[in-house]
Design a binder for these strands. Structure first.
Length: 264
DNA sequence: ACATTGACCTGAGAGC
DNA sequence: TGCTCTCAGGTCAATG
C-alpha cells in the first residue's frame, strides 16, 4: 500500500485526528518495527507529549513532538494508521498505540513488520542519513533537475523512478502508473529517452501522484483512464483494450500495456 | 560507483 | 480439510 500518495493520505488523517492532544500512554507491541530506539525509551519519550504537526518526505512521515524530537513512521508494505475510541474487533497487527487523554487512540498497524517506528532529532538529518532523494512532489523539483537525476542512470527507467536515492516516494504501483500515462516502455534506458519523453514523465509524475491523493488512493475513485483500477481486475488497457502484460522488472512485478508502451 | 538479487516478515489464495 | 507453494505496493546488505 504505502507509497507517496498513501503516506500523504495517512498524514492528512493524522493531522485531522491526532494533533494537540496529550498522550496519556504509548505502547509498543512489537519491537521488530523499532529502529535505533528501545521500547522503554520510546514509550517514555512519548508519554505526556503532544503531536504538534507532521511532515512527509517520500514514504516517510515525521511527527513533531512538543518539547523536542520527531516521531518517524514508515509503513513498509502493509502499514497504516487507525484512530478510534473503541478498538474495532477486526483490527489486527497493531504494533504501536498512542492512548490520548481524550479517550481516543491512534494505532500504527503493520501486518508484515517491514515498517519502521523511530525517533529523530531532526527530519533533515534523518533524510540525509538515509540518503533519500528529493521528494517526488516537491515544488523544488523542476524539469531540469528531473532530467539531471535521470541523466547518467544505467538499468531501466522503472527502477530509476523507484530508486529512493534518486526520487523519494515512488514505488512499484506509481512507477507503473507514471510509465503507463507517459506511454513509456518500463525497460527503456533513461539515457536513451528523448527530451519530449522526459518531459512527459516529469508531468505525469506530478499528475499521477496528485490524482492518487485526490482520489484518496481508492481505486474506485480513480479515473478510468488510469492503470491502477485495471491492473488487478480485468487486466485490460483502458486506452486500447489490449491485454496488460505482467513482467518481473528489477525484482518487482510490473504491469504495462504492450501496445501503448512500446520499446522505441 | 552503480545496478540487481536475496533476505527480511506474515498471511492470503491457488493448486493438489 | 489441510498441506505446500507463491506472491504481495517496503528496504537493506551482499553480490556482480
Amino acid at each position: 500500500m504505502p507509497e507517496l500518495p498513501d503516506v500523504e493520505v495517512f498524514k492528512r488523517y493524522l493531522d485531522a485526528t491526532s494533533l494537540h492532544q496529550r498522550i496519556g500512554r504509548a505502547r509498543v507491541t512489537s519491537e521488530k518495527i523499532l529502529g535505533r530506539i528501545s521500547r522503554r525509551n520510546l514509550e517514555r519519550r512519548l508519554r505526556g507529549r503532544q503531536l504538534r504537526s507532521s511532515r512527509r518526505h517520500g514514504k516517510y512521515l515525521f511527527v513533531d513532538l512538543d518539547r523536542g524530537g520527531w516521531l518517524v513512521l514508515h509503513f513498509g508494505m502493509t502499514g497504516f494508521l487507525r484512530y478510534f475510541k473503541h478498538e474495532p474487533n477486526d483490527l489486527q497487527h497493531v504494533r504501536m498505540q498512542l492512548d490520548f487523554a481524550n479517550g481516543y487512540h491512534l494505532a500504527y498497524v503493520c501486518q508484515r513488520l517491514l515498517g519502521l517506528v523511530d525517533l529523530a532529532d531532526d527530519p533533515e538529518a534523518f533524510i540525509k542519513g538515509r540518503e533519500l532523494g528529493i521528494d517526488a512532489l516537491s515544488p523544488q523539483l523542476d524539469l531540469e533537475s528531473f532530467r539531471r537525476l535521470l541523466a547518467g542512470r544505467r538499468g531501466t527507467i522503472k527502477s530509476a523512478l523507484m530508486n529512493q536515492h534518486v526520487l523519494a516516494g515512488i514505488g512499484n504501483i506509481y512507477s507503473d502508473e507514471i510509465l503507463f500515462q507517459a506511454r513509456v516502455y518500463p525497460k527503456a534506458s533513461p539515457r536513451r529517452l528523448g527530451d519530449r519523453v522526459i518531459e512527459d514523465l516529469f508531468k505525469q509524475r506530478r499528475t499521477a501522484l496528485e490524482t492518487a491523493i485526490r482520489c484518496r488512493v481508492d481505486p474506485e475513485r480513480f479515473p478510468d483512464s488510469y492503470l491502477l483500477p485495471h491492473r488487478d481486475t480485468d487486466e485490460r488497457c483502458p486506452r486500447c483494450d489490449a491485454n496488460l502484460k505482467r513482467e518481473k522488472i528489477s525484482g518487482r512485478t510490473c504491469h504495462y500495456c504492450p501496445r501503448c508502451q512500446r520499446r522505441r
